[in-house]
């Protein structure tokens, strides 16, 4: 285990809400970021840029479902930063006091209809999800993308006829990309990251806007570098990477 060096001076920087990340002295060592699975591509990229901007730092990620991460943090996992895909999971952590800082929303994600290449089911909108002859995949209601899907169907007054309620977005995408289902509801960022599926926009998407909160963990082993990372995510550079991935600005 690498021994983390906490630079006391760096603590003074905490709270300096600069919108541009300028190279800071005293930020170094290793930090561990627990981030929602949907952030895998964008945060990996952000991590590299952060390491380049702050020589001497090393960012390690643990990507998983937000609720699993929340539980790990509550059980005392040695993490520095938590980036959740839903405020609800962030709340699980602030409720127990594992996070005391006020979480900041760094990105928004909306749903999009995902169809296999060529759109064999000729899906044009949310109404197609009620068709019994189409194979439909949704996320299970217990996971954020499923909860969001439920919201948009309620708003559109459509009773969806899903064939399967998947455990996460990746599982949904697998089934879309293999052509096993004709349509699915996933996040816009997921469609963007997967070149085997196509996205179809629909009007009710803004009824379920998903906020991504980020916060420093109370017992962060390397609080200085962790805060620098949080700031970087919220900065203009961070914004650029996230927008490229399909996230909307908060």
């Amino acid at each position: 285990m690498v021994k983390r060096i906490v630079a006391v001076a760096a603590l003074l920087l905490a709270g300096c809400g600069s919108t541009t990340a300028s190279p800071t002295t005293g930020v170094n060592g290793e930090i561990t970021v627990f981030a929602a699975a949907s952030l895998t591509e964008s945060f990996t990229e952000l991590g590299k840029e952060f390491e380049a901007a702050h020589p001497g730092t090393k960012v390690t990620f643990n990507f998983a479902g937000s609720s699993a991460l929340a539980q790990q943090i509550n059980k005392g996992a040695p993490a520095d930063v938590f980036a959740s895909a839903a405020p609800a999971n962030m709340k699980q952590v602030t409720d127990t006091g594992a996070i005391t800082a006020t979480p900041a929303t760094f990105a928004k994600n909306t749903l999009q209809i995902a169809v296999p290449e060529g759109n064999p089911g000729k899906v044009t909108g949310l109404a197609d999800f009620a068709k019994a002859d189409l194979k439909i995949a949704l996320c299970a209601e217990q996971v954020p993308c499923g909860a969001a899907a439920k919201k948009v169907f309620e708003a559109a007054k459509i009773t969806a006829a899903p064939d399967t309620l998947e455990q996460d977005v990746k599982a949904v995408l697998t089934k879309v990309s293999l052509g096993e289902v004709d349509a699915a509801l996933v996040y816009r960022t997921d469609v963007k990251a997967n070149d085997k599926v196509e996205g179809v926009d629909f009007a009710e998407a803004d009824k379920a806007v998903n906020d991504y909160p980020i916060a420093l963990i109370a017992k962060a082993p390397n609080a200085a570098a962790a805060q620098a990372f949080v700031d970087y995510v919220l900065s203009g550079e961070g914004r650029k990477v996230l927008t490229e991935a399909g996230f909307a600005a908060p």
Partner: peptide, 9 residues
């Protein structure tokens, strides 16, 4: 199971 057969109550 969940990959091949999906999940529907």
């Amino acid at each position: 199971t969940i990959t091949f057969a999906g999940n529907f109550p």
